[in-house]
């Protein structure tokens, strides 16, 4: 059997993980949620995730910092970046870091779809 797709959800607002987890699990993904980016980075060192859904602005390392980590370590984790304020500059940087954008507030099914698309690459 194919290995289950693992998804990391990182957002300092606990509601994001709380609500995304059950809908993603229902689709058959393995989900871990984090509210602190430092802890998420530590976990990335231990375990490979197929998909990362992360907030942009957080206290401590930001979403972009986490994306940079992925790039530096040449990980093929597919990233989905959540943000409240999309700016052109951020958009370019995220693009450079191979991430797709979602703006808050968003429809749950939208993220589920994006995670599904990202998962197809494995």
């Amino acid at each position: 059997m194919k290995e289950a797709i693992s998804v990391m959800v990182l957002d300092d607002e606990p509601i994001v993980g709380e609500r995304l987890r059950p809908v993603l699990e229902k689709e058959g993904f393995q989900v871990e949620t984090f509210t602190e980016s430092q802890k998420a980075l530590e976990r990335l060192e231990e375990k490979k995730f197929h998909v990362l859904v992360t907030d942009l602005k957080m206290s401590g390392p930001s979403g972009l910092d986490v994306l940079r980590y992925l790039k530096e370590h040449q990980l093929d984790t597919q990233a989905i970046l959540i943000t409240g304020y999309p700016t052109m500059e951020r958009f370019r940087e995220a693009e450079y870091l191979n991430a797709v954008f979602v703006t808050k507030p968003f429809k749950m099914e939208q993220v589920v779809k994006l995670v599904g698309e990202a998962a197809k690459k494995f």
């Binding site: 409240g84 808050k104 507030p105 968003f106 429809k107 749950m108």
Partner: peptide, 11 residues
């Protein structure tokens, strides 16, 4: 259907 946080509510 939506996921929103407190920031959305405030803004």
């Amino acid at each position: 259907d939506y996921l929103f946080d407190k920031h959305y509510i405030e803004s």
